[in-house]
Design a protein around this nucleic acid. Structure first.
Length: 364
DNA sequence: ATCGATTCATCGCCGTGATC
DNA sequence: GATCACGGCGATGAATCGAT
């Protein structure tokens, strides 16, 4: 397995996907996922997905071989319902989805299926390395310097690249980066797509380890993420992102990792973690938002059932209606006001030490 | 184990539209 | 109006499947 796994092969990426008008971004992918999963957050047999998608007149190979995660369940190939699928099924199509999808492509963990060769488990290492080595390290996320020619030059000069030509792959990759707004990756702020990407990365890393029969304990989620290329390919780095990472990994494990999409698991987990909680089976299946009190930009959409677990992990939960019109500035205002009131109530005096002050503001 | 059928990755050609 | 780059399309041959 060793040799072939490191090879860079274009795979179906030289085949075009019919993205439609550039202004659509990755809408075609978004729709393919919705059709392929038939709107349900459950793993779907690869064969069923393919049939649904090809019947609807969309191409299949690019979604299933580059953007989604494959694994065998009871001997049948399945596509895994993970964070990317969750976003496609529960949120309208926006550039947030496109950027999350670009992350998935660049992160490049798509699992295994029958007939796939070893290299296909990481099908776009050329993109992964182009981003981490050239765009991040050399260009410092100055994305204007990305071009089909530059990609071609990068790929062609790498000894790991195994194909006759690199032109088609390069123009296709550059095209996707453009319509999917890779340029926004230069932001150092914590943004919605980045938060989702972190969850997606953990979903994929954990699944990938599982393919080799390795179960990752929740305590190791953080280091699993750190050792991966997540931080290199998820846009420009910053202290804000580093700080947010800790909170989000905690939220991820609090909600049960990949089990967060199973209401049954979440229910059991909630009853186990918070014994005296009242469980409500909600009719509303729109997701909710978990916001971290330290920074309202740390906003993660989660399955409705996870609300209690998110609160337990120290997040505030906002409802679907609120979420749709989430006003970041307003949220900050309200929270600052509350914090000031708390300080006043706590009789803050000018003679307090920094430590005392910190203790007061840190509570909850 | 064999061999035709099917699926797949790769490549090159073509029409289109942009540019000078 | 010549040239070029683009993505779409489909030909090609290799890999794999599955019926026997």
């Amino acid at each position: 397995m060793a040799a072939g796994e490191q090879d860079w092969k274009p795979g179906s990426f030289t085949k075009n996907f019919s993205w439609g008008p550039p202004a659509n971004g990755l809408l075609e992918l978004y729709e393919s996922i919705r059709i392929g999963f038939d709107g349900r957050m459950e793993d779907v047999p690869r064969e069923v997905f393919r049939q649904r998608v090809s019947q609807s007149g969309h191409s299949e190979y690019i979604p299933i071989n580059f953007f989604l995660f494959n694994k065998s369940k009871n001997g049948i190939d399945h596509l895994v319902a993970d964070e990317l699928v969750f976003q496609a099924l529960t949120a309208p199509h926006t550039i947030n989805f496109d950027k999350l999808a670009l992350f998935a492509l660049n992160f490049s963990y798509v699992g295994r299926w029958t007939g796939a060769d070893a290299a296909q488990r990481r099908p776009a290492l050329w993109a992964n390395k182009y981003i981490s080595e050239r765009v991040a390290r050399e260009f410092g996320w100055s994305t204007k310097r990305i071009s089909a020619n530059d990609i071609e030059q990068f790929v062609e000069t790498n000894p790991r690249y195994k194909a006759k030509s690199a032109r088609k792959l390069s123009t296709n990759l550059n095209y996707i980066y453009e319509i999917g707004h890779l340029s926004d990756f230069s932001s150092r702020r914590v943004e919605l797509w980045w938060v989702d990407a972190l969850f997606l990365a953990l979903d994929r890393l954990i699944e990938d380890r599982e393919l080799d029969g390795e179960q990752i304990e929740p305590e190791r989620y953080g280091s699993l993420l750190t050792r991966s290329s997540f931080a290199q390919v998820a846009g420009a780095r910053s202290l804000e992102k580093d700080l947010a990472t800790k909170h989000l990994v905690m939220l991820y494990s609090a909600c049960g990792g990949r089990e967060r999409f199973s209401d049954e698991h979440v229910r059991e987990r909630t009853e186990l973690t918070i014994p005296d909680v009242q469980w409500f089976a909600a009719n509303d299946n729109r997701p909710q938002g978990a916001v971290h009190p330290s920074n309202p930009r740390i906003l993660k959409t989660i399955p409705r059932a996870c609300a209690m677990l998110a609160k337990y992990a120290g997040f505030d939960v906002i409802d679907a209606d609120e979420l749709e019109a989430f006003d970041l500035q307003g949220f900050i205002r309200v929270h600052t006001q509350r914090a000031l009131t708390r300080l006043k109530d706590a009789n803050v005096t000018p003679t307090m030490s920094v430590e005392e002050l910190m203790r007061l503001t840190r509570d909850k």
